[in-house]
């Protein structure tokens, strides 16, 4: 359960809207189902009071929305940022993707968001309603009722939360957290321990599920190119269904390369994947390698930091050492 009540955020949003600090609010609202919380833009007090939601399903990271929203907005935009979202926020600022002056950022505490798929694994299909309280109460169309601890069904990225520290905000609600000791690289280490054949088989099995819906790309805060290579007819990979093995792998591998060094490990790609592909593992492998080769680096920890892959120091590891040390 989230420590902070929805009403606190509604009050904050309404007061900032009413006193003219901001002209619109980026927040969450209910979707088709209780667990289907979607991002929304609110411009009126009434809309906020009626539809603004904050519960255990508010995983969406709003940072990326600022790229487009700030271009059009007349005034400032209020955005609520969980600690993990603030890293994406800073990374986008590093890349000059939006005007900081046009944003009013409010940091909010987060106890971890839950994964509906993990709930489904307990309750089975046919969820009719979900209520977030001390426990998560799940009702199904078969008149079954489940009471589940949120901590048992957290999103993978929240289980291995890397930081409760907000690295950017204009105003913070609640208490400041700190950078956590995370076990987020354990899964990567397991992949590294595999033989190349095993690893190939693992990724082949995972990536072959891809339906090329582009959700991972669309949600990714690092994927903000004016024109995406996958939308470019000349690229030869534009909006293409994964017709063969090569294409299904290349899409994700190209994407991982494109965001390497810029990915903050916000975990949105895996959260939104309808095929439940653990896409974050590709990015985490890059992050782990970068940390090991060039020293710890967290994209978005500060604005303007130079990612090791786009930087050069005389102390950098020689390519030959990379190969000798890790070549297979």
């Amino acid at each position: 359960m989230q420590k902070i009540n929805r009403n606190v955020l509604v009050e904050k949003a309404v007061s900032l809207l009413e006193n003219g600090t901001v002209c619109c609010v980026l927040g969450w609202k209910k979707g088709e189902f209780d667990y289907d919380i979607t991002p929304a833009v609110f411009t009126t007090k009434e809309d906020i009071e009626a539809n603004f939601v904050f519960d255990d399903f508010c995983g969406a990271n709003f940072s990326k929305y600022l790229v487009q929203k700030t271009r059009k907005a007349e005034g400032k935009i209020l955005v609520f940022l969980k600690s993990c979202d603030t890293y994406s926020f800073n990374q986008l600022l590093t890349e000059h993707r939006f005007d900081r002056e046009k944003v009013y950022a409010v940091g909010i505490p987060c106890e971890g968001m839950v994964d509906i798929n993990k709930i489904r694994a307990i309750s089975g299909e046919g969820i009719s309603s979900v209520e977030c309280g001390e426990k998560i109460t799940v009702n199904t169309i078969y008149d079954e009722k489940f009471e589940i601890n949120a901590s048992d069904v957290l999103l993978e990225r929240c289980e291995s939360c890397k930081s409760k520290l907000h690295v950017a905000y204009d105003e913070l609600i609640g208490e400041e957290g700190e950078v956590l000791e995370s076990n987020r690289f354990d899964e990567v280490a397991k992949l590294e321990a595999m033989t190349p054949d095993e690893r190939f088989a693992f990724w082949q099995s995972e990536l072959s599920k891809c339906i090329r819906c582009n959700a991972c790309r669309d949600v990714c805060p690092a994927c903000t190119c004016e024109k995406c290579v996958f939308d470019n007819p000349k690229s030869g990979v534009e909006n293409k269904a994964p017709a063969n093995e090569f294409e299904e792998k290349m899409f994700h591998i190209i994407r991982a390369f494109h965001v390497a060094g810029r990915c903050t490990d916000c975990g949105e790609c895996s959260r939104v994947c309808p095929q439940h592909i653990p896409l974050h593992l590709l990015n985490r492998k890059f992050i782990k390698d970068i940390n090991e080769f060039y020293g710890d680096y967290q994209a978005g920890a500060e604005v303007g930091s130079r990612a090791p892959l786009a930087n050069y120091t005389t102390g950098d590891i020689e390519p030959s050492e990379v190969f000798d040390g890790r070549g297979e």
Binding site: T94, E95, H96, R97, T224, C225, E226, K227, R306, A310, N311, Y312
Partner: peptide, 11 residues
């Protein structure tokens, strides 16, 4: 196509 991200300027 340029995003204005400054990566090229930095390298």
């Amino acid at each position: 196509m340029c995003n204005g991200c400054s990566t090229c300027e930095r390298v």
